[in-house]
């Protein structure tokens, strides 16, 4: 990390192209392949996560500054929480015999 990086912002450009490509790929997988909907969901989910990681590292410089490690730990912690909240809620609310489905 340096204050004077006159150079061309390659990492931004690569990140941008990757995110456009991943978006199009996700649309392709979703609409033009014959995978089961279960597989499609996993594939496009992983690609979304990959895009998020691109944003975090290439655009948001998550590792930079004195607190780089803390920021990474914070993000990992938040993602774990997100998974607990999302999968926990779905499991709790849709698996029981009182479920509406």
């Amino acid at each position: 990390m340096s204050a004077k990086n006159h150079g061309f912002p390659w990492n931004l450009l690569v990140g941008f192209i990757l995110s456009i490509a991943l978006t199009l790929l996700a649309v392709f997988v979703a609409f033009y392949t014959d995978f089961s909907s279960h597989v499609i969901l996993w594939v496009i989910g992983v690609m979304a996560l990959f895009q998020a990681i691109i944003q975090l590292f290439m655009f948001m410089h998550v590792t930079e500054g004195k607190e780089g490690i803390i920021n990474v730990v914070n993000m990992v912690n938040s993602i774990i929480l997100a998974l607990i909240i999302v999968f926990g809620s779905i499991w709790v609310l849709t698996s029981g015999h009182a479920s509406l489905h």
Binding site: S95, G96, H97, A98
Partner: peptide, 8 residues
């Protein structure tokens, strides 16, 4: 007692 599954 909300009616969750036994596993939950």
């Amino acid at each position: 007692t909300m009616g969750n599954s036994a596993a939950v």
